[in-house]
Design a protein around this nucleic acid. Structure first.
Lengths: 346, 346
DNA sequence: TTGTACGCGTTATCAA
DNA sequence: TTGATAACGCGTACAA
């Protein structure tokens, strides 16, 4: 054999003249050993350079401490940051993550799930949106989703409604003549639909003149840019000289919108106010820092893992009380006021 | 017990009146079974709804098909994209990835490595830079690093030297009066030092007037911005009216530099040419699309996994021939000419 | 406080 | 082409 043999409990047992069981206990119930004997074993571990084998432990105990993760992509900063924050919960909960990034293909994502189940993952966090929650609910392990259709499974979402409301409020404070919301057409079942509803409700409640602009923006810069350029031209015609308060569906689009204005005018004209969504780096680093509604991604990630761990623990009990109703928890967004709304700041 | 019992080979064996061994063979050497019997077993698997258990397979076979991944962060698009591309090699090589993102803490990253080893990973790809390659080389499994100090381990890097050379050449073509390179002070042992050397060599070989500007930029926008602002002021003094060709160490800094110019002048003045590095989204989406030297991250990732798989396979042979010398492979960068150097384009 | 014996779900070896 | 049996390394009743 190539790889040199690994040191096992058996080796330690022989070396210390204890039994395997005692070695096992040293790791799992150290209190039940004499301090003296603990020291003997600990020395032996050192001397023989023992390395844990968690795979064997999993097989024996049935607990993998694995959580599966299904993410649409890592191209968007939002998903990358969610992943980052989820990975960091390792320090709190000790679970390891098996990550797949999807290719928007339902069938392939089903295969990924099978593969994850084969590795005996104890639970799953899903951000991909291809597989309906109806189907996810039938999986034999607890599921938590983040910001996707979640009718039949537990989920953690940003309070999108509040976010949309806050965006409209922020713009309203600056006495705009017209409030606009630019977005892709959105399924009311998706959490992000809340942004639209919140924006609308705020406008209606406060009797603000407003217009909703929906376009199929797609997912690439190349499709987004011309659509936004056209929107700018239309706004110039329709609302020339009027103070326009614009809530754009996300920071990336808001930044593109801003850059298009800059290319034309060399500045952000005084009659344009802009609010984005996500508080992604691009909003801070833009040519004019962009006001935005930020998701608290750290909390989103922490609560998702926390909720999942809770449900996984429930299943380990003798008489588990499985959830009859999915839990939906919501995290408040945060408003970041920057130069695209607060002009007094440079 | 809470979770309903899982179907095992034993169940299938009893149901089909075969032995466990035959069921195992159905998966691993199907050819050795009658087509007839294959059908019987396949039907039984369906009927009993069998789910693979790869953990048990690992214990028996010793092969986890796990690769460990140590990444500094996912905040920077570069790392997120590397991770993304690495994850996608699953389709080609079938290896799964256990991911840790580091906290720049040597001791904690050592713990991560121990944890990864406990899960019997077969190899490791490292982008974090805290642990010296001297130490990594002593680990009991093959290691491949990407764009970090790699003296004692195998590595895949972008050809940074060529990148620096290309940047200088591109600027030189446009008849700049002075070529500048803005960067953080860089250890010559790091691959990215090549950018500096390549830039310098090009300038010297072609007798181009040039200046190197080194500042400790740190890792946050807040520290970068004022330093770049100051540099702009100095350049205005020193090279007023002269055509300045500037190679900035990465796209994020290049974009900040560009935005600072825009805030002052409302445009990119004609006497500034800009080249970044990385071809990250920000370079395309900037207020003026930024010319940049792009790393071919897909190839970088593929070659890293490929090289690692090769070395892992070597170890599985009866008489492995371990590498005496680490392998260092290099991927050519690609030049992206955009508006910050090619002004005729809008 | 320590040890014995068995089980976890596969793969590998050897024999039939 | 198939089967019996022994690993793989650890956890856990149960016994001592």
């Amino acid at each position: 054999m190539g790889p040199k043999k690994k040191v096992t409990f058996d080796d330690i047992a022989k070396y210390t003249h204890f039994s395997k069981t005692t070695i096992s206990r040293y790791f799992n119930h150290p209190d039940s050993l004499t301090l003296e004997n603990q020291k003997i074993i600990s020395d032996a571990l050192e001397k023989l350079n023992y390395q844990e084998n968690k795979v064997a432990r999993i097989l024996a105990s049935g607990k993998t401490e694995f959580i599966g993760l299904l993410i649409p992509d890592l191209y968007h900063h939002y998903y990358a940051e969610v992943l980052n924050q989820i990975l960091h919960t390792y320090e709190t909960f000790g679970y390891k993550f098996l990550v797949f990034t999807g290719n928007e293909n339902e069938e392939i994502e089903r295969q990924y799930i099978q593969e994850l189940l084969a590795y005996q993952i104890e639970g799953m966090i899903i951000l991909s949106h291809t597989i309906p929650s109806r189907e996810l609910a039938d999986l034999p392990i607890p599921i938590v989703t983040i910001e996707r259709e979640d009718q039949f499974v537990s989920s953690i979402n940003t309070d999108n409604y509040m976010g949309g409301y806050q965006a409209a409020s922020l713009l309203a404070k600056h006495d705009c003549d017209i409030l606009l919301h630019i977005n892709s057409p959105t399924d009311p079942k998706l959490p992000s639909y809340g942004r639209i509803q919140g924006f609308l409700d705020c406008c209606r409640e406060q009797n603000l003149r407003h217009e909703m602009i929906f376009r199929e923006f797609g997912h690439s810069y190349e499709t987004v840019q011309p659509l936004l350029q056209k929107i700018i031209e239309e706004l110039e015609q329709k609302y020339h000289g009027q103070k326009k308060g614009i809530f754009v569906s996300n920071d990336t689009h808001a930044n593109t919108f801003l850059n298009l204005l800059f290319r034309t005018y060399g500045c952000l004209p005084d009659d344009y106010l802009l609010v984005g969504f996500d508080n992604s780096p691009v909003s801070r680093e833009a040519v004019v820092p962009i006001s935005t509604i930020g998701q608290q991604i750290d909390k989103l990630a922490y609560e998702a893992v926390s909720l999942l761990v809770q449900q996984m623990n429930e299943r380990k009990k003798r008489r588990p009380a499985p959830l009859r109703e999915p839990v939906h928890k919501v995290i408040a967004p945060k408003v970041f006021r920057r130069a695209t709304t607060e002009r007094e700041q440079p």
